[in-house]
Each structure stands twice: as structure tokens, then as C-alpha cells.
Design a binder for these strands. Sequence first.
DNA 1: AGAAAACATTTCACCAATGAAGTAAAAGAT
DNA 2: ATCTTTTACTTCATTGGTGAAATGTTTTCT
Lengths: 179, 179
Amino acid sequence: MANLTKCIDMMDEGIGRVSLVIPQMPAAEARLSRLMLMVGSSLEEELEAKLKPHKLNHSDFLTLMILYSRPDGHSTPGELCEFASQGATNMTRIANALVKRGLITRRAGEADRRCVLIHITAAGRRLVQKMLPPLFPRIGAMFTGFSEADKRQLSRLLRKLAHNLDRLSEDPHPPRTPR
Amino acid sequence: MANLTKCIDMMDEGIGRVSLVIPQMPAAEARLSRLMLMVGSSLEEELEAKLKPHKLNHSDFLTLMILYSRPDGHSTPGELCEFASQGATNMTRIANALVKRGLITRRAGEADRRCVLIHITAAGRRLVQKMLPPLFPRIGAMFTGFSEADKRQLSRLLRKLAHNLDRLSEDPHPPRTPR
DNA sequence: AGAAAACATTTCACCAATGAAGTAAAAGAT
DNA sequence: ATCTTTTACTTCATTGGTGAAATGTTTTCT
């Protein structure tokens, strides 16, 4: 929406001022969290803009990509929810939309008839193969000026952060420390 | 929602398989982008969970924090839109909600009567001061195992990525290169 | 001064995502 | 064997966020 660099400058100053009033604030970590949030949502915005011409939003696209990247091209709603980090309700909507466009099929499971089996169709594969290559230049451009070492570092640090986030949400009580 | 580490493993495998079919894909960069998106939205989820008890969502909270962190505690809807990366429509809704709760006031601008002046109230400041400290332990915990050098690296790399994203969206045409 | 252009904000209509309740199948208990 | 519990998914009602048009204000042009 607006200029990211400007927002970051503003955030830096803001945290600086707040930490004068509330000195026990972990200012460096707060800055890092805000940076992650800002860069993450800017990246998401960028991605959504590239998907819009294909009438797909992020979660539709991600769902389709998960199916595409599976060895057998199929899955179940529950599994898709898990890997696409979506609620079951929303996955129903996504699947309805993708079925309507002929990109996936949905049929009853055979072994366990509670499950629904979702398969990517040939048209779904064609769409993915058509839309991915135009994305590559921008993905590359995002990392201009990054050395190989920079990329490795970033990967390492993000994975470490992910690990910590997992630990945090396993043990989700803030007031009570359940030993 | 689900386990982040598991989703990341799944993503790594998925990109591995896709890049066998589409070898010109910049796999390392694609992985980094997905990592950013996944960690970013997990962080957002974590934050929203902490805000929910106060009946604030991320954009409400961010708006209030921007006002709180201003030297004079005031701003205009336009400026808030810019720094909170929100559309004007949504800022109207946010301001309505915060006014109704007595956390901000909204009155006509004096110099330029097209503008609206938004001030944080004493109750708004009190709320911020009450809700920030319980956030600190979790912010710290997110970065356990990060050395000082790690934090500096992460900050540097995120800012570099932000810079590249700004350059990308200034010049937004993918097919045509408008020289 | 009066008309036109540019701005700041709000209203309206819509879409995506969520939570709570509902339906159906499978697994487990008695 | 059947009754209960659990699992998998869908439906319905609501919330958060967006784009397009509307309103009121200031600035600019002639």
C-alpha cells in the first residue's frame, strides 16, 4: 500500500519513543517482530497482486500448489487445512471454488467414507505450469543484493524463529505457567 | 493453527518436487519467500491471540500504538492509513470502533477543515500501558537462542528485503518494462 | 469572484475468513 | 449388538477488510 521503508523508519522512531516511557520493553526484539510482520504482509500483498489476474487468492493458490507438489496429486480437506494453515470452513469454500473452475475434483473416500478425496485435474496442472514461470523474475528480484551467505543466514534465522514460535504455541498460557 | 515446523518440512519437500518438473524455478528464493510468509503469518496469529482478550485486532492495536508513540499523541486518518498500511475505508471503521470505546477522539481539523484530527485519550494511554508489559515475555521468548549477532543479521536482512520490495512495487508492471 | 480540479474522509455493497452448530461415518465402550 | 464418543466435513450467521461512488473542503485556474 504505502512505502515500506518509510513505515519502517516511522516504526523505529515510535519504538524508540515508547521505550523511553516503558524502559523494560525488549526494544530490539519488538523491532524485529514488527519488521517480520511488515515485511511479511508486504510480501503477501505482492503475491496477491500477482495472483489476482488469475482470479486466485493466496489460499486458493496455496491449496492448488500443495496438490500440485504432491507425488500423486491428491489429498484430503483435513490435510490441506493443516498444510495451508486454513480453517476447515475456509477449506470448504476454497474447494468449492476450485471445483467450480475445474481445477480439482472432489469425491468420497473409499477406505474411510468420512474423508473426501481431492485431486488436482489436468487443467489444474496446466494452470500451475502456466502461472509459475512469470513469477520467477520477481522472486529473484526480491533477493537482489543477497549473497549466498545472506540467503543461508536468512533461512537459518527464519527456521529458528519458526521453531521458537512452535514452542510458544504448544504451551499457550500466558498468565499461568503450567510447569 | 497447525505446527509450523511440520508445514515448513512439507513446503521444503514440495518445492523440491516442483523444481524437478520446472527446473528454471529459483528454488532457494522460492523457499525463502514461503518461509517469510509462513513465519510472518504465524507471528501475526500469535499477536492476534494476545490482543483478543482486549477485544482489539491487529489493525486496531497498531493504530492505537501509532498514536501512543507520537510525541503529541495525535494524527489524521490519512497519515494513520499510511503508517498502519490500511485502506481509508478500514481506517474509518477502526476509528469508529476506538472512538466508541473512548480510546481516541475525533474532531474537525482547524487549519485544513478537510482533515479530521485524531487524538489518543488518557484511557487509550492507560490501556496501552496496561497491555504492553504482559506481551514482553513472549516477545523475548520468540528470540531465545538468538545471539546478538543473529539479531543484527536478521534485522539487516529484513531491511534489505524491505528495500527490494519497495523497488519492486514502485515499478509494478510485470509484462511491460516501461524503461 | 466563480468554475474546475484535487483532496480527505465517509457510505455502501461486496468478498474472504471465522466460530458455532449440524450431519454423517467410524471407532470404542458396555 | 447398540450406544456413545470421536473424527471429518459442511452449513449458517457474523466479522474484518476492500473497491467504487458520494460528500464536503480547499486550492487553483481564468
